[in-house]
Write a protein that binds this DNA or RNA. Structure first.
Lengths: 233, 233
DNA sequence: TAGGCTGGCTTAGGGGTAGTAAGTAACCAT
DNA sequence: ATGGTTACTTACTACCCCTAAGCCAGCCTA
């Protein structure tokens, strides 16, 4: 009842949830992902193991919720970079968002690594899971900007007829999935860019490039220059 | 003693080791990476848990050994593709090896995913670990071919002076690490290609592209065309 | 051939995990 | 005041990694 749309109980619950997330994150950052167990988290917040099941139905669900937090924080950082230059040309905003993405990944390696490393269990793959929702919000930041770019300053695209049929079908499906805001051939360019950018970060965070690089910042910048070329920025 | 360099005991031990690997792999493929536990593997081969410590000092070591197996199998597949066309131009062999890489990854998703997903613990990062050795063998297949390409049909490279200094330093270090078989600017091109190729597979296997693609074969082929362009094949 | 060493295996157990079940105590609304 | 909901507890199952201690068979040597 009352105004605040939150009873005392709700407020307490919310506070506890936040405390749980904070504890889980601390364990992740300080002791690695394996340390984020139901019991350890419960100990951190000062309750005994099974009590946590009043907040999450399973370990998976806790993992999903924490992952969703990270996605939201990352998306917020990217949106911040975008809105800080709201009047700049869209190309400039795209680059700023990409840099914000890497900046967050660099300053939060444990959290960013967790996003990849934590296996996406079936329950977290369901489209209505908090994890999936948050992932979508994250993905849409760059997608929306690309749509804006496509509308105001279309970038070069390949001829759809030149693409193999199986790819064409998948792109058509994806184009439909994003409500046709990009035609298949533009979606193709977007996905290529996304794949390169995100793939680079993915490998960095999974230490798959340690054998050659110690600092990927210049590599990332070069990747950005490539993308700027592709998008004709 | 004797000729065969293997006593009866050694032979038995080798057989048991193979049985252990087979059991671990079966558990991985059939029930996922979490099912590959010391106890479960031991049960599979018909012994009780602690007996496995006569073969591996820890769970990590078992994981590392199985991962090494996968690397070797993958490297063998790639080398097979290379040697099946021993007389073909080196560019053709490179493409064949890349396709063999993806073919193995596609037909062995659990094993290929395990290579990424299984966290590289400190002990498995030591350069003398079986896991590290096997990883190197895998990496060297394409590196060696690129070196051959560079020697016989040099591909276009950027001017080293145009690269940012931090990148230049890292490339110089890497060039030295591979005994100067590629100069820094050629190493840069090689690493760019490697990053794109492997990054794509990495994202595929970690289901980071499921939101857009269901079959990455044509995407991979397009990536290969790009690489062929870059390497002037 | 007898004794000892070694390697392969066992059971028992310590300390951890996820998750269930059942019971208690506090809060809240009627 | 009462009854329902919520938050939490302890106790438990079943599993995990790993250590310790001991049994036993095969091999090596004397």
């Amino acid at each position: 009842m009352a105004a605040g749309t939150s009873s005392r109980r709700e407020r307490l619950r919310r506070a506890t949830l936040e405390e749980i997330h904070t504890a889980a994150r601390r364990l992740l950052v300080e002791q690695g992902s394996a340390a984020v167990t139901i019991n350890a988290v419960a100990r951190q917040v000062g309750m005994s193991g099974p009590a946590l099941y009043h907040y999450y139905a399973s370990h998976d669900e806790l993992v999903g919720a924490v992952t969703a937090d990270f996605f939201h924080e990352l998306a917020t950082a990217m949106e911040g970079a975008r809105d800080a230059r709201a009047d700049a040309p869209v190309g400039e905003r795209i680059l700023a968002v990409c840099r914000a993405l890497r900046a967050w990944a660099s300053t939060h390696p444990a959290e960013f690594g967790w996003i990849f490393a934590s296996p996406i269990t079936p329950s977290n793959r369901r489209p209505d899971s908090v994890r999936h929702q948050a992932g979508q919000r994250f993905e849409h930041v760059l997608l929306d900007l690309t749509v804006e770019l496509w509308r105001t300053r279309p970038f070069p695209v390949p001829d759809l007829a030149d693409l193999p049929e199986s790819l064409r079908e998948q792109l058509t499906a994806y184009s439909a999935a994003i409500d046709g805001r990009l035609p298949p051939e533009a979606a193709h360019v977007f996905l290529s860019c996304w794949t390169r950018l995100y793939g680079l970060l993915c490998m960095e965070v999974l230490h798959q490039l340690d054998f050659a690089y110690s600092d990927l910042e210049p590599v990332f910048e070069e990747c950005l220059r490539d993308l700027a070329d592709t998008l004709d920025l």
